[in-house]
Amino acid sequence: MDISTKNDAVPPPVSPPSEAEQKRAARGATRPGDRIFLGLSRGSGIFLLVIMAAIAAFLTYRSVLAISKDESNFVTTLEWNPTAAEPSFGIAVLVYGTVISSIIAMVIAVPIAVGIALFITHYAPRKLGGPLSYVIDLLAAVPSIVYGLWGALVLAPQLIGLFGWLDDYFGWTGILDWQGGAPRSLFTVGILLAIMILPIITSVSREVFRQAPLMHQEAALALGATRWEVIRMSVLPFGRSGVISASMLGLGRALGETMAVATVLSPSFEINASLLDPGGGTFAQNIASKFSEASEMGRDALIASGLVLFVITLLVNGGARMIIARRAEYSGANA
């Protein structure tokens, strides 16, 4: 399983430095230059910690302020009314909306992104592949407010037909039942988010597929495998964890997306059984919609919901990092 082709170019060191030597080097405190440099870089790390601690303290403080005044259960309540005489607000609707729209986005985006990545690395003519990956990467940088405008003006009207069709054939399931409103539901948001995270997932997966060991592929080809069999047997197993971590990155963006969701969704504080009917909401969208008119108390409540989003995103990122770490061991890259 030696895939680190880069390392092949460098002749192996005659005698690898011993454990003790490495430790001394790592401490690096022997020379003044080293000491200064270590101090600088450690200082930066500490600076980062301080900022984070300050933000965390700020968030927690204001969240606790809000939640302690909440007259109803913060987790299960289905309304958002922090400014009433008896403040009552809960995140159930937001959790549902955020999770559902992100799941839809992932279900659509991951297979397509893998497809595009494979297309670029293994199917497209080489002349097409390069420019294509440029274009895909550029699209990762389109500001979300522009996606929002496009989603509301161009995408949503196009979905009317699709929604009608889904309702005709799958309406009996309940979850794809459509009352015929404007197509601005969690499903629409899911599709838009899928389009937004496609470039991210694609570009990371593409890099992973490109690293797939050439030897394996050539060996498989030599045995008479078709191109699909080569991909299924040597490229996909190699790239699986990479694709998962790419998807997690995409999921992270989908969870926190604000402006695009706020422009496209027709939000309301209720949980709809049907994915096609307007309603629901996401954390980030709710913060953006409610923030400007909110009083101090309202802002605190929104910050509390932000803290929850924060924790969810953290879990997703943590998961991605664990998988990436496992992959690093697997591929034999430097620790």
């Binding site: 404007a182 027709s266 919609s289 909110a294 309202g298």
Partner: peptide
């Protein structure tokens, strides 16, 4: 199709 404001508004 009755639309209302999703943000808080005067």
């Amino acid at each position: 199709q009755a639309f209302h404001r999703s943000d808080e508004s005067g």
